[in-house]
Computed example of a mutant assay.
Amino acid sequence: MARIADEVFYVMFLNRRALANLNEFLARYAGEVSRDNFDTDEASLADLFARDGELKRVRPPMWARRAVFYRDRGRCTACGADLSGLIDTLSVGNYDHMMPLARGGLNDVTNLQLLCENCNSKKSDRVVAPSNRYRRWY
């Protein structure tokens, strides 16, 4: 079962559109969470929320940033700008929540995509369908 779960995650992680749809579905539930509904023994869960229905912003751990960077091939998923630092050393990559935290999005590797500064500032906290641009392997 663990191997099947790993394989499914691997296949799903490559598909940003499917991940965005999954996170939109999960955001409906997270958006309805009230911090007051947690019991005293669940206080640590309440601390994860900035306010009702919105998780606190947390910097993605290094393993998640690497996974997203390699999945997105070091390019902005919106405009395709190189963010690897090999071609343009001034380009800065941003790890964007496909489903914004302000709209119930999760702090999870499945909700991240790589955007350049310009595309990230244009997107802000709006929900924008992620690019379906993928590397062909054949």
Rank of each mutant, 00 (worst) to 15 (best):
residue 4 I to P: 00
residue 76 C to I: 09
residue 118 N to I: 07
residue 117 E to S: 15
residue 5 A to Y: 12
residue 2 A to W: 09
residue 81 A to V: 09
residue 122 K to W: 09
residue 18 A to I: 11
residue 1 M to T: 13
residue 22 L to C: 09
residue 95 Y to A: 12
residue 54 E to W: 01
residue 90 L to Q: 10
residue 87 I to W: 07
residue 79 C to V: 04
residue 111 N to D: 11
residue 71 R to A: 07
residue 7 E to F: 01
residue 45 L to P: 03
residue 54 E to R: 14
residue 115 L to M: 13
residue 117 E to G: 15
residue 18 A to Y: 08
residue 111 N to W: 02
residue 82 D to H: 06
residue 83 L to R: 09
residue 98 M to V: 14
residue 9 F to I: 09
residue 20 A to T: 04
residue 128 V to G: 00
residue 93 G to P: 07
residue 40 T to R: 12
residue 29 Y to Q: 14
residue 113 Q to F: 04
residue 19 L to F: 05
residue 123 K to W: 01
residue 119 C to L: 08
residue 61 P to I: 09
residue 5 A to N: 11
residue 131 S to P: 03
residue 85 G to C: 00
residue 100 P to G: 02
residue 80 G to A: 07
residue 107 N to A: 01
residue 83 L to W: 03
residue 123 K to Y: 07
residue 120 N to M: 01
residue 53 G to A: 06
residue 62 M to H: 13
residue 136 R to P: 00
residue 84 S to F: 10
residue 87 I to S: 11
residue 58 V to S: 13
residue 130 P to W: 01
residue 84 S to V: 12
residue 20 A to L: 04
residue 8 V to P: 03
residue 44 S to H: 12
residue 15 N to I: 00
residue 79 C to P: 00
residue 30 A to G: 09
residue 90 L to C: 00
residue 125 D to R: 04
residue 79 C to I: 05
residue 138 Y to A: 04
residue 101 L to F: 05
residue 94 N to R: 13
residue 10 Y to V: 06
residue 19 L to S: 02
residue 106 L to S: 07
residue 106 L to D: 00
residue 24 E to V: 04
residue 129 A to P: 11
residue 60 P to Y: 08
residue 64 A to S: 12
residue 22 L to V: 10
residue 15 N to S: 08
residue 23 N to Q: 09
residue 72 D to F: 06
residue 34 S to K: 12
residue 107 N to S: 08
residue 44 S to Q: 07
residue 99 M to E: 06
residue 93 G to L: 01
residue 99 M to F: 10
residue 60 P to M: 06
residue 131 S to F: 00
residue 126 R to W: 02
residue 22 L to Q: 15
residue 68 V to A: 08
residue 126 R to I: 11
residue 73 R to M: 02
residue 79 C to Y: 06
residue 126 R to F: 14
residue 107 N to C: 08
residue 21 N to G: 01
residue 58 V to R: 15
residue 96 D to N: 10
residue 39 D to L: 06
residue 85 G to M: 01
residue 80 G to T: 04
residue 125 D to P: 01
residue 1 M to V: 14
residue 97 H to T: 07
residue 51 R to C: 11
residue 32 E to M: 10
residue 105 G to Y: 05
residue 15 N to F: 02
residue 88 D to G: 10
residue 138 Y to L: 09
residue 26 L to M: 14
residue 50 A to G: 00
residue 91 S to Y: 02
residue 93 G to A: 15
residue 109 V to N: 10
residue 76 C to L: 06
residue 78 A to H: 13
residue 6 D to I: 01
residue 53 G to R: 05
residue 116 C to N: 12
residue 83 L to N: 04
residue 41 D to R: 06
residue 93 G to D: 03
residue 15 N to K: 05
residue 48 L to A: 14
residue 85 G to H: 03
residue 44 S to R: 06
residue 48 L to E: 15
residue 49 F to N: 01
residue 30 A to Y: 06
residue 22 L to S: 10
residue 46 A to N: 01
residue 15 N to P: 00
residue 25 F to M: 14
residue 49 F to T: 02
residue 114 L to Y: 06
residue 82 D to Q: 03
residue 100 P to W: 04
residue 28 R to K: 15
residue 2 A to T: 12
residue 79 C to L: 11
residue 58 V to A: 10
residue 39 D to F: 02
residue 25 F to N: 05
residue 37 N to M: 02
residue 104 G to Q: 03
